[in-house]
């Protein structure tokens, strides 16, 4: 830290800042204080914990992939075209951010449940039932994670104009070539940041998943669901804590790793 001549630190800011740090730190310490090494060892070797861990990673990664496939084009249209109703559309995209996840899950169920028109078609034609299936869990996670990806990618696109794409056009590159060779590579930092946020949100997703996809080990019981049912259900608090810690370690290490590599260049 360097301070300008007139820029002595405002001591008054230290206290609320310290409160903020403690507010985050103390619960984490509480979590650690409850877990014993033996518990962690037990949980790590228990098939149940590993199943939910694997499922969590699979679902969250799939949710990110799904979000990227549909979210990048959406962000592109929002940032680069003068579509009518664009503001309305952006508001709509942000909706899952403010919607309580449980309500989001109920909404998904009322749209894609087996007895709904869409769900009925999926079930009768393809034999796919989204509730109770891993696909349903992925969908719930993508539903809550998608806005993070779209917002970040759109901001990245807005940061620079279409100048490089125009240069490419004068060099004879057709629209799709410009998109893949210019737009996408230049978007890499924002896309990584957006995907990381989306992934973190998906990994921690609880409400929409349990409401829409239900909870069954190996199919839809992701780590947060497993932690919750261990906590509320069997009263196995130490197991719940261990599961939470696993989730914590994975998310923090991935996010810190990405931050050093990519996120710093976005800001």
């Amino acid at each position: 830290m360097r301070w300008g001549a007139a820029g002595r630190p405002l001591l008054g800011l230290y206290i609320p800042a310290a409160v903020a740090v403690l507010f985050i730190l103390v619960p984490l310490v509480g979590l650690l204080a409850h877990a014993s090494l033996a518990d962690i060892g037990d949980a790590l070797t228990s098939t149940a914990a590993l199943t939910s861990l694997r499922l969590s990673l699979e679902c969250s990664l799939l949710a990110v992939i799904v979000s990227a496939i549909v979210g990048v084009p959406l962000a592109y249209l929002l940032a680069r075209t003068a579509m009518r109703g664009r503001r309305l559309l952006r508001g709509l995209v942000l909706l899952p951010l403010v919607l309580p996840p449980v309500v989001g899950g109920i909404a998904l169920q009322s749209a894609f449940g087996r007895s709904t028109p869409i769900g009925g078609v999926l079930h009768s034609l393809f034999g796919v039932t989204l509730p109770f299936s891993t696909a349903g869990a992925v969908m719930a996670e993508a539903f809550v994670g998608l806005p993070f990806l779209v917002i970040t990618v759109e901001a990245g696109l807005r940061q620079r104009d279409a100048g490089f794409e125009e240069v490419a056009a004068t060099l004879g590159a057709r629209p799709w070539r410009r998109f893949w060779l210019i737009t996408m590579p230049l978007l890499a930092p924002s896309l990584t940041a957006g995907a990381a946020l989306c992934w973190a949100r998906a990994l921690g997703e609880f409400g929409a998943t349990i409401t829409f996809a239900g909870s069954f080990p190996g199919t839809t019981e992701t780590l947060p669901l497993a932690a919750y049912s261990a906590f509320e259900g069997s009263g196995a608090v130490s197991r719940a804590i261990t599961l939470s810690l696993i989730l914590l370690v994975i998310s923090v290490s991935v996010l810190v790793g990405l931050r050093d590599r990519w996120l710093g260049t976005v800001a």
């Binding site: 100048g163 490089f164 240069v167 056009a169 004879g172 210019i182 230049l186």
Partner: peptide
């Protein structure tokens, strides 16, 4: 005629080279 079909070469003042 679309720009990519024009056989036009442009040297821009900014956005010169693709950074990646």
């Amino acid at each position: 005629v679309e720009p990519e079909s024009r056989r036009v070469g442009v040297v821009f003042q900014d956005h010169t080279l693709f950074p990646h």
